[in-house]
């Protein structure tokens, strides 16, 4: 599902909300802010959010996007939920390593592996 003007696709599988990005480049502040608000409203609606964010279509990611992911992670944790990231291209994964955010986020190779980890 992707509403008009939405920058993400949302799907529910086995109680886990799967999110995919529509844009290949997650770079500019305005789009990132809109994405953050959209994911924020999903978290707000859930008692114990279980989110899987897939980067399958993503070629570029800026520090602003990392900041939004951190905010999302904090919101989910504060509600006792869980965030998992998956399908991260090696070049993008390097951005997580450089910033040491690979140690903050739960990152899985694939959607299947991530879904399994939710149990």
């Amino acid at each position: 599902m992707a509403g008009s003007g939405s920058r993400i696709r949302i799907k529910d599988t086995q109680g886990v909300t799967q999110i995919e990005f529509i844009d290949r480049n997650i770079l500019d502040e305005a789009n990132i802010q809109a994405i953050g608000e959209e994911i924020g409203s999903i978290i707000d609606r859930s008692a114990k959010p279980q989110l899987l964010i897939s980067f399958a279509n993503v070629d570029h990611l800026s520090s602003a996007a990392l900041g939004t992911l951190i905010t999302v992670n904090t919101k989910i944790r504060n509600k006792g939920g869980r965030l998992c990231l998956a399908n991260i291209d090696p070049q993008i994964y390097e951005v997580f390593v450089i910033t040491r955010l690979n140690q903050l986020f739960d990152i899985k190779e694939s959607t299947e592996e991530a879904l399994k980890s939710f149990g």
Binding site: S62, S63, L66, G67, T68, I70, T71, N73, T74, V95, I98, T99, R100, L101, Q103, L104
Partner: peptide, 22 residues
């Protein structure tokens, strides 16, 4: 330094680190 343990969950301040790394 956003890569320090105490700053890891701060949303901002990573642009410089990335420019320096790349």
């Amino acid at each position: 330094d956003p890569t320090l343990d105490e700053n890891l969950e701060t949303p901002g301040g990573r642009g410089l680190v990335l420019m320096r790394a790349y």
